[in-house]
Amino acid sequence: MRVTAGLRGFTGAEARRRAESVLETVGMAKRADRPVRTYSKGMRQRIKLGQALVHDPDLLVLDEPLNGVDPVGCEELNDLFRTLAAKGKAVLVSSHILHEMDQLADRILFICRGKLLASGSLAEIRDMLDDHPLKVRISCGSPRRIAPQLLTLESVKSVSIEPPCDLLLEVQNPGRFYAEFGEFAAGNDAQVHRLKATDTSTEAVFDYLMERAARPE
């Protein structure tokens, strides 16, 4: 790590200070004296991340940074990325493990075969896919009673019942639906236990984008 600091123009005590600081940051300070060849893949990922951080860059570009990292380590590194972003650093992460991005990225670029399919927040991109109604699962006390009533809402495209007490909805305008449903539930004693959109994950949105891209123009 001190060699990397030296390559960045730091010498002597400053190179040593920066090396020790980033080793602490990436959770490798207690293992710093071990030969790199004895490290696991996840530990080597941490070392490479430390090398990228040693000169305190404003922009951090990471290619599959969580590859080979165990679940606990993934959460620790994600926390680090969030901390860096909160400090004003730009963190650009390339990953094909899409679910990793669900809780990490505030802006996403979907790219396939060198073509940009969409960019923005995950919610913005999902709302853009108006040819794919949002799928919402509702657990409630009386699904058969309220199912036909839900069809009167302008934003609801379809309703199906999934025993014992779930409703599956297709919603055309999510923003309008949530506003309408709040009033509906309050006025119809819907006894709602849970409401959850089921196709807003990064993987689901990417699948929709790929389907759209495959259509003939």
Rank of each mutant, 00 (worst) to 15 (best):
R194S: 13
A15G: 10
S94Q: 06
R137F: 03
V69L: 03
V69I: 12
G141S: 15
R144G: 04
M128F: 09
N78Y: 00
P65D: 03
E124H: 11
L60C: 07
L84D: 00
S160G: 10
P133A: 03
M101F: 04
R34G: 09
E100P: 00
R16N: 11
A90K: 01
C112H: 15
K115E: 14
S158K: 12
D56H: 11
V205D: 02
V171H: 01
L117H: 09
I47P: 01
Q172I: 12
A29G: 04
Q103G: 14
D130G: 07
D127W: 04
M128I: 04
P57C: 09
P216E: 15
E76C: 01
K89A: 00
R17D: 14
L62Y: 06
R82I: 09
R212V: 11
V36R: 05
A32M: 08
I146K: 00
L60W: 05
S139D: 14
K48V: 06
T200D: 01
I125C: 03
E76D: 10
S21Y: 11
L59W: 11
L116S: 08
F81K: 00
I138V: 15
H99R: 13
T152R: 13
A179M: 13
K135Y: 04
H96L: 07
L53S: 03
R16V: 12
D70A: 11
K30D: 13
T11N: 10
G182W: 06
C74F: 07
M1G: 08
G88T: 06
